[in-house]
């Protein structure tokens, strides 16, 4: 059993008080059984999405062969390309982007176009990420953060002056790599 010192008892009491495991939660649906494998990181989610899209493609393709007029939905109503041109091309070489679309997506896209932003693609988690900088990056000392006019050819560390260089030369094994990692310039072995 737990030691019965007053502090320990007080602590135990506090823990019992803030614990939410024992508190009844009547607002929860008792039949709610979540998917055991629902916890996914971003990488997995994005990977799954790509795979799903890829697996949709052949089925669309097949259905397109069975009913050749099916994917004309887009082009025929738009009127900016003739169905005569697009139909044989799409059956021979399926348009990947089009193939993965489902109905609701197409409808939404149509709505978007009516708003006047027809050229822009949808905003997704990946494509709103900022692009690499075009500006020339300034160099800063890896040790102190001051301006760094020099680079040590051996460790590839940037440094401020000869005293810092002395420090670099006395760094232990692997420390230089850690400094590089802080700048994202370390070597990654795969």
């Amino acid at each position: 059993m737990a030691p019965a010192t007053p502090e320990a008892e007080a602590h135990q009491a506090l823990i019992e008080q803030i614990d939410i495991h024992q508190i009844p939660k009547p607002f929860r649906n008792s039949h709610w059984k979540p998917n055991q494998r629902r916890n996914k990181n971003i990488k997995t989610i994005l990977g799954d999405a790509v795979r799903k899209e890829a697996s949709l493609m052949p089925t669309q393709d097949n259905s397109g062969i069975a009913t050749p007029a099916a994917d004309d939905f887009d082009t025929s109503t738009d009127g900016d390309s003739t169905p005569a041109n697009s139909t044989p091309a799409s059956t021979l070489q399926p348009n990947l982007a089009q193939a993965s679309r489902n109905l609701s997506k197409l409808v939404l896209e149509r709505n978007m176009r009516s708003n006047g932003f027809s050229t822009a693609p949808n905003a997704t988690y990946t494509n709103i990420e900022s692009a690499p900088s075009l500006a020339h990056p300034r160099h800063y000392c890896d040790i102190t953060g001051l301006s760094a006019p020099y680079t040590d050819p051996k460790t590839r560390l940037r440094y401020h002056d000869k005293e810092i260089f002395g420090v670099i030369r006395t760094l232990g094994q692997g420390v230089a790599e850690q400094y590089l990692e802080a700048r994202g310039a370390h070597t990654v072995l795969k």
Binding site: A131, P132, S133, A135, R138, A182, G184
Partner: peptide
């Protein structure tokens, strides 16, 4: 040095443009 990263992400090895850019 630390707050500056948002203006110069390359300081922390982030290969993205800074907020001004």
């Amino acid at each position: 040095r630390v707050p500056e990263v948002i203006f110069q992400p390359s300081i922390a090895g982030l290969d993205q443009a800074g907020i001004v850019e």
